[in-house]
Structures are given as structure tokens and as C-alpha cells.
Simulated assay, not measured.
Amino acid sequence: MELRQLEYFLMVCEVNSFTRAAERLYVSQPAVTSAIKSLEDELGIQLFDRTLKQAVLTSEGQVFYKHIQHVMHGVSQTLSEIDNLKNLNTGTIVLGITPLAGIAPLPQQLAAFAEIYSDKTDRRG
């Protein structure tokens, strides 16, 4: 199971059409159809009723949809948190101070750090 397949599945659910999903995803309609078919084969279930003009979820598809929404939301949150860490928007600073160095320069160094990252530091305390 690939994230791409899940994204395609959710888009088809959103627009009730393989063709419109492909247009919104900027891919070909056969690519969407193939991805969904591959997903169905892997799961061993049919996700959409293809006898209608619209893409309508089967009972199994409805259960899958409910859970995949949560999964994809979690993936989105995870990627956002990782991006925040990479861009130094969040994170943890770990300080190690030896007894020989003392803590005298620490306030100045923390103040300098806060100045450099003033737009990104958390000022709760």
C-alpha cells in the first residue's frame, strides 16, 4: 500500500469520479484507475461500485475511507512536525555544562540565541 494510492482513493471519494480526481491530481485517469485497482487487489475488496456513472463507495470502501482519513491526517501532521524541526521552528535545546567552564557565560549565550531566533522561540515563561 502506497501513500499515492491512498491520496488517489481519497480524491476519488471527494469528487465521486475517477476522471475529476485525475484532473485535480494532475495525473491521467488511467493512472488513478490503475492505482485504485491495485489497492483493491492488495486489500482483496472492491472499494467502489463501478456500475454507476459516479464512483460510489461500497460498504467495505466506506469502512476503509473512515480509517484512511485518520491515517492521512496523521501522515500530514507528522510531515508538518518534521518540517518544523528541519526549519528550526520547534525543537529542544540540550545544554551540557562542565564544572570547569562554569555557568557564568550561559545567560549571555542564551540571550544571544534568543536574539538570533527571536521570531521562532517560545516565550511562555
Rank of each mutant, 00 (worst) to 15 (best):
E2N: 02
L3S: 08
E7Q: 11
E7G: 07
F9G: 06
M11G: 07
S17C: 10
S17A: 13
F18P: 12
T19N: 13
T19Y: 10
R20G: 01
A21V: 02
R24D: 15
Q29I: 05
P30C: 09
A31L: 09
V32P: 15
T33S: 11
S38F: 01
S38P: 08
L39M: 13
D41Y: 07
D41H: 14
L43I: 01
I45R: 11
Q46F: 00
Q46L: 05
F48W: 00
R50E: 00
T51D: 00
K53A: 13
V56F: 04
S59W: 02
E60F: 05
V63G: 07
V63F: 07
K66G: 04
I68G: 13
H70E: 15
H70V: 12
H70Q: 13
M72W: 01
G74A: 07
V75M: 07
S76T: 14
T78M: 03
L79R: 04
S80A: 10
I82Y: 04
I82K: 05
D83W: 01
N87Y: 05
N87K: 11
L88E: 06
L88Q: 06
N89F: 12
T90E: 06
T90N: 12
T90W: 04
V94M: 00
V94L: 02
V94G: 03
G96T: 08
G96P: 00
G96A: 08
T98D: 12
P99Y: 02
A104G: 05
P105H: 01
Q108R: 15
Q109F: 15
L110E: 09
A114T: 15
A114Y: 06
E115M: 09
E115A: 14
D119P: 10
K120S: 10
D122V: 12
R123K: 06
G125I: 09
